[in-house]
């Protein structure tokens, strides 16, 4: 059985870093639709790909969260990117692969991937 001892060690090693971490005001929110429609269309792997990549790449200014149904069930899985001071970007029919592209191109380099957005999909 994996025990809680390891967790204590993690706490000790992290507490020393806590003070160094600054809270940046410019939080980017990445929201995944996780209602019945989203989950049935494959939102769970998309959400996990996003949160894994955010952690692996150390993107401290990005918070990945979930939301309910936004009424566009036929376009699920949907990922919304909300950056302070910018228009919301809505990516539709997402996959874990596309999610990783969004991390690299949009969240890191600041380039919206137009071909995956809802505006492009609606024509």
């Amino acid at each position: 059985m994996k025990t809680l001892e390891e967790l204590k060690a993690i706490r000790e090693s992290m507490q020393s870093q806590m003070g160094l971490r600054k809270e940046s005001g410019e939080q980017i929110r990445v929201v995944v639709g996780m209602a019945t429609c989203g989950i049935a269309s494959g939102a769970r792997p998309v959400l996990n790909a996003l949160s894994d990549a955010v952690q692996a790449k150390g993107l401290k200014n990005v918070a990945v969260t979930q939301t309910g149904c936004i009424g566009l069930c036929q376009y699920e899985p949907i990922v919304e990117v909300m950056e302070p001071g910018k228009d919301k970007v809505t990516y539709v029919k997402m996959t874990p692969e596309k999610a990783n592209e969004v991390i690299d191109q949009h969240l890191i380099r600041g380039q919206v991937i137009k071909k995956y957005t809802i505006t492009e999909m609606l024509g």
């Binding site: 994996k2 967790l7 204590k8 993690i10 507490q15 806590m18 952690q55």
Partner: peptide, 24 residues
């Protein structure tokens, strides 16, 4: 209780949660 103010979604802790679930 163990972690204090270290959040559950910090990379080190979530990696631990993942392997805690899988191994157990």
């Amino acid at each position: 209780n163990i972690l204090g103010d270290v959040p559950l979604n910090s990379p080190e802790v979530s990696a631990y949660i993942k392997s805690y679930l899988e191994e157990n």
